[in-house]
Simulated scan of single mutants.
Amino acid sequence: MDIYFDCGSGISGDMTLAAFVDLGVPVEWLRQELARLPLDGFDIQESVVSRNGIRAKKIDVIDIHGDGDDGHAHGRHYAAIRSLIGGSPLPERVKQIALAAFEKLAKAEAAVHGVPLEKVHFHEVGGVDAIVDIVGAALCVAHLKVGKIAASAVPLGSGHVTCRHGVLPVPAPATVGILKGVPVYGTNVDCELVTPTGAAILTTLATEFGPMPAMTMEKTGYGAGTREIAAMPNLLRLISGRFQTAGAADGHADLMMETCIDDMTPEIWGHVMERLFEAGARDVYFVPVHMKKNRPGILLCVLCDKAQREALAACILSETTSIGVRYYPVERIMLARRPVTVKTAFGPVQAKAVTLPNGTTRIAPEYEACRKISLERKVSILEIYRATADGPVV
């Protein structure tokens, strides 16, 4: 299944764990798996609560020691947490996710406090509850066999929060560091909506951020935060289902970036195209246009994924004479395709097998493969194209 994180009220570690449980992860199974960690004196407690009339699950990590740190009253160093998780008998995928999340936390803390990564000492996130939240989230992802994860833009609270370092602004400095590159927006809610642990889990799991992608929804899970917030239901919503992909003739959202240029030497255009492809463009093309004062010019069109917008805009503005770029969302309909090798009289040739809307398959030869054979054999590239289109797939 695929999952969309709807973070309308922010995200924390316990909200994430609760939402996964509400989505279908058995809490008893989760308790048994977490018991494999070399941690003593904790338990997890499940309850059902209501937030603004919406039923949700809540998960509390119970510290039997009563000091909040599993006997580690002063937290743990990053190296200790890494050893604790890495040396556990948990599945490799679970350990990889959990270690990646803690690495994000460690890097953010190292930057904030100006210390080397290995010397980062966790306080709030070094306790048993944060370890359980992060490892528990990784266990849930593995249990549900989650494929892709996307997330909404993240709302940030305001005001101040008190921690062992003293009074800090909201969002906390570590949270800000972890959320770099993630779309966020401010609110007037006077509390912490996103914790460092929640930010680390989210940025480790989600591969894209923005509006809900085209998907077939199946189930919804609600995870409640501890606070009652008058302005909004303090809930994290997980929506599971299947994202539409390029594996069928489905819509795929992208951006089109454009700019018109009439004062650049033609010699540079080839270089610009190469740099744009290197920067992640899906497609680049030039269209002749007539601009103001009837000047002939070129309309530069760049198709790209939303995540590549900033990099490609920087490339356009530094590699051309343009002083501005416009962009807008576009949608594509893409046919299913897969790489194949075709047997021909010229040897094996790489191609794509494209499935048409009526279910039939068309072979599309790969240009570079055909060009290489053409130069080596001194044969017309058209002959190689024809032989590949009509040949049997190996």
Results as ranks from 00 to 15, higher is better:
I261H: 03
Y222N: 10
G270D: 11
V112W: 04
L179Y: 06
A311H: 09
D129V: 03
V302R: 00
T360D: 15
V176I: 15
V120Y: 04
T320F: 11
G347D: 11
Q45P: 00
K148P: 04
N358I: 05
Y185N: 09
H77M: 14
T265P: 02
V394Y: 09
P89D: 14
M217D: 03
G159W: 06
G241R: 14
N294V: 08
L17H: 03
L84D: 09
K107G: 00
E319Q: 15
A307V: 04
V120T: 02
G359Q: 08
L105G: 07
G8N: 12
A101I: 01
Y78P: 02
A387H: 07
T341V: 12
S9M: 12
E192L: 08
K58P: 00
R76W: 01
P348Y: 00
R55C: 11
P288M: 06
T344Q: 12
G347R: 02
G75V: 08
A246E: 13
S318F: 04
R76E: 03
A110K: 01
L375C: 01
L90R: 10
Y222S: 07
L202F: 02
K57S: 07
P155C: 04
H160T: 13
G221Q: 01
P38R: 14
G270R: 06
D190W: 00
H143S: 08
E192T: 03
T204M: 00
G270L: 03
I363N: 11
E383P: 03
A307F: 07
D6A: 15
M215K: 14
F122W: 01
W29R: 04
D2Q: 13
C260M: 15
L30H: 09
C315W: 04
K107W: 02
I85T: 00
V342E: 04
P213D: 08
Q45K: 15
G280S: 10
K107F: 01
L303M: 05
S380R: 14
M334Q: 15
